[in-house]
Amino acid sequence: MGIRFEGDFTVTAPRDEVYAFLSDPQKFAPCLPTFQSLEMKDEHTAEVTVRVGVGKIRGNATIELRLKDEQPPTHAAYDGKGKVMGGAFNMETSFDLEDADGGGTVVKWVGDLNMFGKLVALAGGLIRPVAKKDIQKLVDALQAELSGPQASGAAG
C-alpha cells in the first residue's frame, strides 16, 4: 500500500544552514516525535529508532535511512526501509529549498511510504491519519529548531 505525503513550511534560518541540518540525520533525527536512538552505519546511512503507535499500543519502529542524493544547498533525497509492529515499509523522501520572500527558507518536501504486511491488511486505512499527526509534530519541531525562539513564537 503506497501513500504520498507532501507539504511545505517556512523557517527563518538561511538556506545553507537549513540544508546542513536536513541533510544530516544526526541533526534532524532527534526532531522526530518520540525519537529513541540513532546509530550511524556509515557516512550516509543512519539507523534511527522511534517509538510509534496509538493509545496504549506502542512499539519501536527502526528505519535504515540512507542519504542517496545530495545537491547542496537546494535538494537532497533519502531512501529508507524499516520494520514496525505487524508490518514492514519502504520510504523515499526528498526536500527542495528556496529562499523565502523577506528572508528565511521555504522547505518543500515530499515523502512516499510503502507499507506491507498484516497491519496493512487489517488496519491500512489508519496509517495515513496516524502518520499525518506524527508528520505535523515533526514539521513543528523542525520549524522551532530552524527558526529560533522569536520566529517560532511568531508563527505559533
Binding site: K56, G59, G86, K118, L119, L122
Partner: peptide, 20 residues
C-alpha cells in the same frame, strides 16, 4: 499489561503482533 475480557478485539491485535 492489558486487560482481557472476551478477547475478540485484543487477541486479533496480538496475533498480528500489532501489540505485544
Amino acid at each position: 499489561a492489558r486487560a482481557l475480557a472476551g478477547g475478540q478485539s485484543l487477541l486479533v491485535l496480538l496475533k498480528i503482533r500489532f501489540d505485544e
